[in-house]
């Protein structure tokens, strides 16, 4: 059926654009940074901004893959260019945050970062511990739902294709695509007897709040370090967030 085909395409788009396979992430989930390694990170991060640059780099790599995911999503490239950009600009970081639940070990609150699982401690040099904790809380709440790969694929697609974003030119066309994705997702959940997932998903506002916190933290960081060259951050990161 067309809906079944859509489901397959969403899953394939997602699998083709994943940085790491879920099996590998599962296998390595107890491979954590040692105390010494965390100290080394913190020492290296001492010049202002080193850790910010590092995280911005990793985030930008993840966002580039979100763009590839979007391009492979059925119907996305048929949207007008303005709307493709609006959806990615508003949704790319949200998709990365959703995907983070695959790379998160809820049992010891660590996330896969640069080759190993890292606790929030590793990111202390960023100077925004509360924000990092909120991200970890979000990943933990999503992890607790034990989503399958197909479910994460649909969650990402639906975070991206959201007709409620501001500045869309052809809202109706986006709404149509969103509607198709929602129907396919519901069918998948019914087939796998996972309908209880929908009411348990974190509210959209939570993702939005994390993204605005990110912007606030970045602005605060840039205010604190006015001498930092804009070129310290990857161009795509600058384009999206500054």
């Amino acid at each position: 059926s067309p809906m079944e085909q859509l489901t397959q395409k969403v899953l394939r788009s997602y699998q083709e654009t994943c940085q790491l396979g879920s099996e590998e992430l599962q296998l390595r989930r107890w491979d954590t940074f040692s105390r010494e390694e965390i100290c080394t990170y913190q020492r290296q991060a001492r010049p202002p901004g080193k850790m910010w640059q590092r995280c911005a780099g990793r985030l930008t790599e993840a966002i580039q893959l979100v763009v590839e995911f979007a391009k492979r999503l059925p119907g996305f490239l048929e949207l007008c260019q303005n709307d493709q950009i609006v959806l990615l600009k508003a949704g790319a970081l949200e998709v990365v945050l959703v995907q983070m639940c695959r790379a998160f070990n809820g049992e010891n609150r660590t996330v896969f970062f640069e080759g190993k699982y890292a606790s929030a401690e590793l990111f202390r040099a960023l100077g925004c511990h509360e924000f990092i904790s909120s991200i970890f809380d979000f990943a933990q709440s999503l992890c607790a739902l034990h989503c399958s790969e197909s479910e994460v694929a649909f969650l990402c697609a639906l975070v991206l294709v959201n007709a409620n974003r501001r500045w869309l030119q052809d809202q109706l066309q986006v709404a149509r695509l969103q509607g198709q994705l929602e129907v396919a997702f519901r069918l998948l959940l019914r087939r796998t007897q996972r309908e209880e997932l929908l009411p348990r998903l974190p509210p959209q506002a939570r993702l939005r709040a994390l993204c605005s916190q990110h912007l606030e933290q970045l602005q605060a960081f840039l205010r604190l370090h006015p001498g930092l060259l804009p070129s310290a951050f990857p161009p795509l990161y600058r384009e999206l967030f500054t």
Binding site: Q64, V67, K71, L77, Q81, I85, L88, L236, E239, L240
Partner: peptide, 16 residues
């Protein structure tokens, strides 16, 4: 368009 030229380029690039 000018403001989002990298995003624009990534979207246009069919080889990636």
């Amino acid at each position: 368009k000018e403001k989002h030229k990298i995003l624009h380029r990534l979207l246009q690039d069919s080889s990636s």
